[in-house]
Write a protein that binds this DNA or RNA. Structure first.
Ligand code: FES
Ligand code: FES
Lengths: 145, 145
DNA sequence: ACAAAGTTTACTATTTTGGTCAACAATGGA
DNA sequence: TCCATTGTTGACCAAAATAGTAAACTTTGT
């Protein structure tokens, strides 16, 4: 029950992108540098997000990445789903055929509830939430003043 | 974010044990047979449960396994914890040192909430719940009569 | 044309998972 | 006492997933 580095790096990259977005696209290289993630590896991680249309990319000189939606409209549930492939603790949730006698299996119901709990948690958080949280954490002096 | 077979097999084995408990110990061989799990593999899976004292084992002729507590006092959270090692989606929940700058990391907070959600779900289910659920599923005719 | 970006494919090393096997230890019964 | 039976342990192994590297390729602005 571990999250892969893809999910963690990807989320951080997306958060980084959200925070540094402006008129101009943000280069993958910058994100990799700031987040201390291998550029080559990050390319692989970002790919599914681009394919899914969460990120728009423009190649060539002065190219880079941009979010296609506002951060408040990007839920972590969707992000993790794309990065992790699936969040199901067991395969038979998605396709009951993977286990024999899935219809009489009682543990399956429990794993199913687990998935729901995870989904609900991730669904309640948007990229905007993360951005705001980060800003609060990075400006503690202002809070105390 | 997948559960290992150890967690799934182990839970099923424990459920099987709870259902077939009587005066005499239940043999690992029987459980393996009923649940269609490799005996040798199941030995390894059961081991941490014995070590943790959830199961009492007696060796030798006519030996076998017995629960040390009533099924209603065995929570899945504890079982999965033992079988899976940890339920944390990331290491830095348990030991914050594993990530650098864990104190300013906002994604960590999210993963932490995920863990809480999972824990809560598993904590709300006991072995007894599973047994009852199973019995309801296996006797649908009686329900309809 | 050229340099600067992202894209894609191929490859690799390491770790985790999911087992198997065999020696061993303890126990009850003949 | 000895043996069959049952659980315990540690060594070992193959396959898959994970994490990462490298390089060729495509697109685009200047
Ligand atoms: S049906 Fe898949 S775990 Fe039981
Ligand atoms: S501190 Fe561990 S994920 Fe950020």
């Amino acid at each position: 029950m571990k999250l892969s580095t893809r999910a963690r790096y990807g989320t951080r990259a997306l958060l980084d992108l959200a925070r540094h977005e402006g008129e101009k696209p943000v280069q993958l290289k910058e994100i990799a540098g700031r987040q201390n993630i291998s550029l080559h590896y990050l390319e692989h991680i970002i790919a599914p997000l681009v394919r899914a249309g969460i990120i728009r990319s423009t190649r060539g000189a002065r190219g880079g990445l941009q979010l296609t939606r506002q951060p408040k409209d990007v839920r972590l549930s969707e992000v993790i789903q794309l990065l992790e492939g699936t969040i199901s603790p067991v395969d038979c949730i998605g396709n009951p055929e993977s286990c024999e006698r899935a219809d009489t299996c009682v543990t399956r119901d429990i794993w199913c509830e687990m998935k729901k709990a995870i989904d609900a948690t991730l669904d309640s958080v948007t990229l905007q939430d993360l951005v705001e949280k980060q800003e609060r954490k990075e400006a503690p002096l202002k809070q105390n003043a």
